[in-house]
Design a protein around this nucleic acid. Structure first.
Length: 612
DNA sequence: CTGGGGAAGGGGCCC
DNA sequence: TGGGCCCCTTCCCCA
């Protein structure tokens, strides 16, 4: 730890004779901050997650609250904070977080000196007066007008939605360590800017202490806080003392086995880098280059396994259950490198995220792309079947075992039981196995057109206006029929009282408002716009993804007053409280049995109805 | 060992 | 965007 200088100074202090109320350990605050910063970099005792541009930062509520009124108000009620990416980018926030913890404005990952304009904007947004003042001084000194650096606008107004949508989803770049922490040192040699994150993110954690860990104990801080000095010793980017941008899940996630030296991402495939648009495929307006830019920004390296392919081992390990208990196999460990190499030069994380999960099952052959599921396409309806995200499509193995699409759809198709889910699985198979798309592996579901790259597909998807989607439904969706009928049977049932003028273009479901209808229609897409930046699982709704993230991060904001048990959802807490209250509102009309959970009643009813 | 119930985790989806 | 609800699933306990 820091006992060396600390104890020396303490001795000097203790030797003083006038140990009056003025006693002060000169370096106390500094050391304290150092410790806190060190803890932050290791995720130790971090109790808040800040998401910026899909990058995740961990920090301590106390520190944030002490630094900013804004943060104070945020962390009071939330453990997961999303910052306005218009006001602060992940890179800038990294600097800000460093500043908060060190009082120093460290060089960013980028070679250029900090953009004080953007920093000022962010500092103003985050209500960090000291930092804002510092930036103003710098700008004043440089003779630059204040607040000109912000993307979008200088003021607090938000840029047009279209601009905001261009925010890069670069989270993958933040997780190289999740992928293979062991390669951190290696990567750092070639790409020093990547070192910090890699090391820090190392899941096993075995080497992060010595190599990275801010070097608090080893950095010759020279009386300074150490961080600045260390970090500046590198190429102005991260360096040993640079703090990682990402999140060390090893602190909060279930125990993980030591990271295995998984295959590195092939450096020749920058296409595997995260696309910036996967957060909003229908609005995939940003050019793919944003991806690489973000990637470079983040200190990512071409061989960082940003995608799940190189990362499969580690990502799998991420998904292990508590106590290292293996969860259901998430993704088969298949030779995905070849797959990735053959992958069309597409940057969308749809591909990247799906490549892994969608890889062939063990033993599955026929790796030719022509036989493969196009990366960018995910049968949304089929969805990840198991709670731990089995491949959203049944692999052959599963099919052979009877875990076919029907079961899959049955699981995921919640809407009264798999209506369109099954239909989409069907479509998936059709598109996947029989439709001769040739090289156009990225298929637009609404119109069944194939595209050679996800970018093109995304661009095409954008051309589908809502109207088109409505109009096209009848003819274009060869898939819709079965599922639609099923759904029509048991799902729609709109109440006659409520007019529901908005009808899904795929199935028969109707909605009161177009937004909901659009939201629903996304469930028919083969693409899931919202990837979990930790495990890569894809979701159709951002909220679902966020909720899913909470489970990764072990964020359980809802605590039971009675027993202290915590839950990720309010509803769960409500449900749980019945355990204490004894309330059993769900009664079986057949036997009178009462249940605290409706799902248990349903399960119970099945017992009644199933042939015994 | 098995089946049923209790409790909980997680995803889908509508509002 | 989050809440709420539905569904599937799992784990544990107990008879």
């Amino acid at each position: 730890m820091v006992s060396g200088p600390l104890s020396l100074r303490w001795c000097a202090w203790a030797g003083r004779r006038d140990m009056g109320p003025e006693m002060e350990l000169p370096s106390h605050s500094k050391q304290l901050l150092l410790q806190l910063n060190q803890q932050r970099t290791k995720g130790f005792l971090c109790d808040v997650i800040i998401m910026v541009e899909n990058s995740i930062f961990r920090a301590h509520k106390n520190i944030l609250a002490a630094s900013s009124i804004y943060f104070k108000s945020l962390v009071l009620h939330d453990n997961l904070i999303n910052l306005d990416t218009d006001m602060v980018s992940s890179t800038v926030f990294q600097q800000i977080l460093d500043f908060i913890y060190t009082g120093k404005l460290l060089p960013s990952d980028q070679p250029a000196e900090p953009n004080f304009s953007t920093l000022l904007t962010a500092a103003s947004y985050l209500q960090l007066p000291d930092l804002a003042a510092l930036c103003r001084r710098k700008l004043k000194r440089a003779g630059k007008p204040f607040g000109s650096g912000r993307v979008g606008a200088t003021g607090m107004g938000r840029p047009p939605r279209s601009q905001r949508l261009s925010t890069a989803s670069v989270i993958q770049a933040r997780y190289p360590g999740l992928v293979d922490g062991r390669k951190g040192a290696h990567a750092a040699q070639e790409h020093p800017q990547a070192k910090g994150s890699d090391e820090e993110l190392f899941l096993g954690g075995s080497n992060q202490e010595s190599v990275h860990g801010l070097g608090l104990a080893v950095c010759p801080a020279g009386g300074e806080t150490g961080l600045g000095g260390c970090s500046s010793s590198t190429n102005g980017s991260s360096g040993d003392c640079e703090q990682e941008l990402g999140l060390d899940l090893s602190k909060k996630s279930p125990p993980l086995p030591p990271a295995t030296p998984g295959p590195h991402l092939t450096p020749d495939d920058p296409a595997q880098l995260s696309d910036s648009q996967h957060g909003s495929p229908p609005s995939a307006s940003a050019p793919p280059v944003a991806n690489s830019a973000s990637y470079a920004e983040l200190g990512g390296t071409p061989d960082e396994p940003m995608d799940l392919e190189g990362a499969e081992d580690s990502h799998l390990s991420l998904l292990e259950g508590p106590g290292g208990q293996p969860r259901k196999s998430l993704w088969p460990s298949a030779p995905k490198k070849e797959w990735s190499k053959k992958e069309p030069a597409a940057g969308s994380p749809f591909e990247r995220r799906e490549v892994g999960p969608k890889g062939p099952c063990p033993g599955e052959e026929g790796e030719g792309l022509g036989d493969r599921v196009p990366n960018g396409i995910l049968a949304s309806g089929s969805g990840p079947s198991g709670p731990y995200g089995e491949p959203p499509y049944p692999c052959k193995e599963e099919e052979e075992n009877g875990k076919d699409g029907s079961e899959d759809s049955g699981q995921s198709g919640n809407e009264g039981g798999s209506g369109h889910a099954g239909a989409h699985y069907l479509f998936w198979q059709e598109g996947y196995e029989t439709v001769p798309y040739g090289d156009n592996l990225y298929v637009c579901i609404p119109c069944a057109k194939g595209f050679p790259s996800s970018e093109q597909l995304n661009a095409h998807v954008e051309t589908h206006t809502e109207e088109e989607l409505f109009i096209k439904e009848e003819g274009a969706y060869e898939t819709g029929s079965g599922g639609a009928e099923e759904e029509a049977e048991d799902l729609s049932a709109p109440s006659a009282a409520e007019p529901r003028p908005f009808k899904c273009s795929v199935c028969e479901k109707t909605y009161k408002d177009p937004a909901t209808m659009r939201q629903h229609e996304k469930t028919h897409w083969l693409m899931r716009p919202f990837p979990c930046n930790i495990c890569g699982k894809m979701f159709t709704q951002r909220g679902t993804m966020t909720r899913h993230m909470r489970s990764h991060l072990d964020l359980k904001p809802f605590a039971c007053d009675e027993c202290g048990m915590r839950f990720t959802r309010q509803y769960r807490l409500t449900e749980h409280m019945r355990v204490h209250s004894g309330e059993k509102p769900y009664e079986c009309h057949l036997c009178g049995g009462k249940f605290t959970q409706q799902r248990n009643l349903i399960s119970h009813l099945r017992m009644h109805t199933s042939p015994s």
